[in-house]
Structure formats: C-alpha cells, structure tokens
Design a protein around this nucleic acid. Structure first.
Lengths: 247, 247
DNA sequence: TCAAAAGTGTTTGGTTTACACCCATGA
DNA sequence: TCATGGGTGTAAACCAAACACTTTTGA
C-alpha cells in the first residue's frame, strides 16, 4: 500500500465520517465503494501520533471532499470488540498480495464517529486507496454498508435530528445565499415531515440569525423568492447558546 | 504495580468517568486523590482487549462505587495530543521505583468521557492503585483537577444540563422512592436556578412517568410530602422518545 | 389569464407563567 | 398558635398551529 506508514498512526484507533449534503430535495451522504468487495463504506481514517481526533477528521474530510472549514462534530464512539471483523480492507490487501500493512488493518479498531454538514455544490469527491468510487448517495438508496457503518450512519442521523431541535445547524448544508423555501425543504427533508410555510418562516426569522437581501433568486419559475444570508455574529451566538430548553 | 498486565489492554485508549451524586441539596462528583502528587482525579481506566468501551466503563464504575446497573453514558472523546503530558501516575510509579508498567502509563492516551448518575446513598467509594482517597466532592468545592479532568467535568456537566432538557434523566440521582420537593431541589441544583413549586409539579406529572404512593415521607419537619416512584414502563418510553423538540 | 409559488397577517387554542389559598406539622 | 413547608387551583400572558388573501411570474 502506497504512502502509508502505520508507524505514524495510533494503534486501534480510527474514525469514520458521515458527510451530509443536500441536493435536489434529498439528504445525501458521501460514500466510498471498495475496490474488491464492492461494498459501500463511510470515509474514514486514522489518527496520527501527534494529532487530535478533530484534526484527523478534518484531514480525512479535506482529502475526500477538497473542503476546509467544515461544520464537523464528534457524535459517538463505536467500540464493539467484534466490529472490526470482516473488514473488507483486509481482503483487499490479501488480494493484492502480501502487504506490509496487512497486520495494521487486521487490528481491532475503536472508531469515533464524526458528522459533517457541507455545501453539496462545493464538494469534489475523491476515492481513497481502498475504493474506486466516491459518490453522493441519497439516504433512501443506501442499502448495506460494510461493517457497522450502517449503525454509525443511523446514529449520526439521529444526532443530527436531535441537534436540529436546539441549534440552528441545518444552514451549513446550504450555499452562502439561499431562499426561505430552500431552507424549509431542507428542514422538511431532515425531519421527514411537512411544515407550514408561514409558521416556519416566522420561527426562523425570530432567531434573528439571517439577513434578508434585496436580491431575489432568479431563474426559477413563478414568483422569485428573496435570498437570505447569515448574520454571522448572531448565528455564532445562537450556536453557542442553543435554543434554551423548557426550563 | 500489582495485578496489572498492560498486555490485556488496548494501547492509547482510556476512559474517565464523571460520577454524579446528589446529597444535602448539592450536586457531587466522585473523585480520587493521587497518592504522591495529592492531585485530584476522575475515576478512570482502560479497555481490555475483548471489551467495549461501555463494558470497561461499567467495570470501572463497579470497582469505584460497588454498584451495577447504573445510568451511564458516553459524552465526548478527549484526544488532545498534549493531554497525557504531566500524568501524575507516571511520577507516582517513578517514586515507587522502576515499574514494568511505567512505559504503559507514559503513553499518549485518547480518553472517552462517560458520565454516570447514581444514588448517593448506595455508593461505597473505593480508591484505586494510584489513589489513597475516594471521596464525594460538591461541585463548588472542586478546585484543580489533574490533567484535563476539569475540562472533562465541565463538558459532562454541560451535557447533563442539555440532556435534562429533553430526557427525564435526573431521577437516576434519587432513591427509588422520593418526594416532589426532593426532585425539585435536584432540578434546581443541576440547572442552578429556582423553579416554581406548582408549575414544576404540573410539568413533571404531565410526563406520566411517576406513580404517586399513598405513603408520605415521615421524619421531616412540617407537613409530610407524598412519596413517588417510577412508572418504569412509561419512564423507559419517555427516555427513548425524549421530549420532542419544537418541530 | 391562469396555475403555481411566494409574501404577509390574523385567529385560535394550548402551554407556560405567575400568583393565592388552605392544610399539616413541630416548635 | 404560629412559622414553615406542602398540596392544589386559576387567571393572564405568551407562543405555536391553523388558516386566507394578495402578489408575482411564466406558460
């Protein structure tokens, strides 16, 4: 295996990223397809000797999407002793002859799950050493994933939905300028339920984290909706404080 | 060091437990005092080769408190590459002469934080190899903790408060039978704010997770308050479903 | 000129908050 | 008998849900 020296990485420790994007009214996840087994997998990686988990996750994200400065969040650690059995990477290495890194990939790994929210349009998907495809998949079309990656994905989605109820994070999935109907579609998709247009707008605006622009979104049919952008200062404040719970 | 064989544990990986208890209207945390450095520390441990993080945390909890079946939850991973510098355990081992495990404790550790909610009265605190005291400390009296344990504690507290707003978890800090004023004091302490007695009761009862008993709490001065216990079935349902957010 | 989408406002009902009275108990 | 805390009810304020009309645009 090229360019990989297991000496540089912490043993037993890995991370997997659930990278969410929003496109054509669908919530999508960036997946890799393994070269030999053809199984689908979450983008993942390992932690260097002098790196934090967060730094490692940023690195993985940068490598697979080309993006920096992404909304990224640790959400759970997966440590079932059996989870690393049947790692297709091991088979792939066996197929390609004896590899000095076979032992490394045969380890038991404890993996931290990170989820990322990105602007779909900005991503340039790039496969890694073990994969020949890196693609967006709509949630509905995702079938089996390798190892426990389905479980990781489910937990990420659960966390995303929960977090959406006390932080205004969904916006990270949209471009800098977006319309209210786009934002609503996004929320409806993530939450998997319809929302009232007028009540939605009132609620979002009450957070005071958006600037309404004079511009309208051109090109679409029918009446052109206004564009909005972040009021960055208020947005960051809202992120920190969250929407106070019921106490 | 007695009874410790580093061969049995996963390298680089540790866990720290923030064990919360409630006593005399104070939120308390179980801490250990290191033998040599006298620094205070969270109870922690390592993950065995064939163990999950959760199993390891249960083991640590059992060893320090004598309790099984505790509310226990992973909340964050701490992976700063510098966090394991200045580990007092290393100094302690050096003090006590050359120890075969010195190398193990000198490693860089990535630590998963767990928090536990326990019935104060049921705990029998027991120090570990590196500590000579294991004690409950009220939050206010906790000063410096070793390494990044203060950060871990703060994050645990933050998570606890957040989780309290969408799950009825506080109850785990009380005995099987408890009164409404006791529960209210608990919530007030965790949230660090006063609550209206009547509104509090109405809200809690609306969750329908309590059985009001005919019994009253004897012994206290003034009017004896009713005792309550869990409606276990409804409680577990509420835990799973959470209090739906605002969507 | 009509259908589809977007902008905006009002009514209604439920939830939360604020507040008051009576009861039980031990000093 | 009185101070203290506990049990319970109600009115007001607020917020969320339901709903309707007007405007813009391309076909």
């Amino acid at each position: 295996m090229t360019n990989f020296n297991s000496q540089n990485y912490l043993k037993h420790i890995s991370l997997d990223c659930v990278i969410f994007g929003f496109h054509e009214n669908q919530l999508k996840v960036l997946l890799l397809q393994m070269k030999y087994s053809k199984e689908w997998s979450l983008p993942g990686g390992f932690v260097k000797n002098e790196e934090s988990f967060e730094e490692a996750a940023k690195r993985v994200l940068q490598e697979r999407t080309g993006l920096n400065n992404i909304f990224l969040q640790q959400f759970c650690v997966f440590s079932d002793p059996q989870r690393s059995k049947f790692n297709p990477a091991v088979k792939d290495l066996q197929e390609s002859g004896t590899d000095p890194n076979l032992e490394w990939f045969s380890q038991r790994f404890i993996s931290a799950g990170f989820y990322a929210l990105v602007d779909f349009e900005k991503v340039h998907p790039l496969p890694d050493f073990f994969s020949d495809h890196c693609e967006w998949k709509a949630l509905e079309e995702i079938e089996d994933l390798m190892m426990d990656h389905r479980k990781i994905l489910n937990k990420a989605l659960e966390t995303l939905r929960l977090q959406l109820s006390y932080q205004p994070i969904g916006f990270n999935l949209l471009p800098e300028k977006f319309t209210m109907p786009e934002l609503q579609k996004l929320y409806e998709t993530i939450l998997d339920k319809g929302l009232d247009r007028r009540n939605f707008q009132r609620k979002i605006l009450s957070w005071k984290i958006l600037n309404k622009l004079d511009e309208r979104k051109k090109g679409g049919a029918y009446k052109a909706p206004y564009l909005y952008e972040f009021h960055l200062e208020n947005y960051n404040k809202a992120l920190k404080e969250g929407f106070s719970g019921s106490w």
